[in-house]
Nucleic acid binder design. Structure first.
Length: 364
DNA sequence: CGGCGTCAAGTTTTC
DNA sequence: GAAAACTTGACGCCG
């Protein structure tokens, strides 16, 4: 099947990648004598934020300074994350960036601050530098706005806010250097459909309300309840589909989809020549302490044992299930992966090490 | 300094 | 009817 996937389209020839999402967790380090030292180390590597309520309580000058300080920190932290990822083996050169780079970008309290020239130039210079660094280090980048980012809603205000939020993510991508063309360098901004109404058809109609650069970066992900893989594939002619294998397992009440499934071909086609990205996670290890790590979790059986739908949907700390990891390794033939584990890099690095070892053994 | 409540935002499901 | 689930900390206040 790898022959069939080896298309002549530009990005399909890219090597496989997998990575963690948003937050870097430093290794336990003996030089961190105290909990505080470990926290400080994490702080350096991760993005921060500021609440709009706090900003609003400050006077004009302090308000600007506070936000500028957070933005400065975030640009530097993002650059450190990307530098770290680019220093990893090629298999690990993928990162989902946190949405909080520019906190409150679409909020009325912060908006006027972002409009000021010194802030603009700080951001443009910083993001352009970060983007260059990502491309030089061959790090594939994505963003995943929160659940508030819906582009089709029955509530016109919610829809307007959601579209503004999507445009914010697209602007960040543009300032990073991913502002033109179809998912340039595999970059993307991934969202869900959102509410039951207006659903898939409302989403399709809303595509005409967003900018071309946002449309060029947009992807849509199957969710665990309302809009499963078949539903989002109905948008595949316009929007690339991000396949979340764990959501699919929950939504289908236990199906593990394999690379030779016809629906995988439809997912690949939706990306139109760009190498797809998929998501993986697994139910919490604390929920299944006795579970055989070499057996795929069985949804109907676990459900019968009294585990609720919601508990099974929650994410584990680490990629503890070797059968699920083997499934990821098979899907890496056609897709990159974002590892949605609470342990972040502490989960993705060992997973990549095991998969990388298996890949090189298979090649030998 | 630790604990707790609050903080921009939407929608659904479950207790 | 409140809380939890998706991205998660930051901040002020109280003891």
């Amino acid at each position: 099947m790898s022959r069939e996937l080896n298309t002549s389209e530009p990005n399909m020839g890219e090597p496989p990648r997998l990575g963690f999402c948003c937050t870097f967790i430093p290794d336990p380090d003996p030089s961190h004598k105290t909990l505080k030292a470990a926290k400080d180390a994490a702080k350096l590597m991760n993005l921060g934020t500021v609440t709009m309520a706090h900003l609003e309580r400050l006077g004009p000058a302090a308000r600007f300074e506070k936000l500028e300080g957070v933005v400065r920190h975030n640009l530097a932290a993002l650059e450190r994350q990307i530098a770290w990822v680019s220093g990893r083996p090629p298999l690990e050169r993928l990162l989902r960036m946190a949405s909080s780079v520019l906190p409150g970008y679409t909020h009325p309290v912060a908006q006027p601050l972002y409009a000021q020239a010194p802030m603009r130039s700080l951001i443009e210079t910083g993001l352009s530098r970060v983007g260059e660094r990502a491309r030089a280090g061959e790090v594939r980048l994505s963003m995943h706005p929160g659940p508030f980012c819906i582009i089709a809603s029955r509530n016109p205000n919610a829809q307007a806010n959601g579209i503004a939020e999507l445009e914010y993510h697209a602007e960040v991508m543009a300032m990073l250097g991913y502002g033109a063309g179809w998912h340039p360098h595999g970059a993307h901004v991934n969202i869900h459909i959102g509410g039951r109404e207006p659903g898939i058809e409302g989403f399709r109609e809303s595509l005409s309300l967003i900018s071309e650069s946002a449309r060029n970066l947009l992807t849509v992900e199957n969710d665990e309840s309302l809009f499963g893989l078949d539903a989002v594939l109905r948008l595949g002619d316009r929007v690339p589909v991000v396949l979340d294998l764990h959501h699919h397992w929950v939504e289908s009440r236990g199906e593990y989809i394999e690379p030779d499934d016809p629906r995988i071909r439809a997912v690949i086609a939706s990306w139109r020549g760009v190498r797809p990205v998929s998501h993986i996670s697994v139910s919490r290890e604390t929920l299944l302490p006795e579970h055989d790590p070499d057996a795929l979790p069985d949804f109907p059986a676990l459900s019968d044992q009294g585990h609720s739908w919601r508990d099974l949907a929650a994410h584990s700390d680490l990629m503890w299930n070797r059968a699920v990891n083997a499934l990821v390794a098979r899907h890496l033939a056609w897709s990159d992966f974002e590892i949605e584990a609470k342990g972040k890099n502490q989960a993705s690095v060992p997973l990549a090490a095991r998969i990388g070892r298996d890949l090189s053994r298979a090649a030998a």
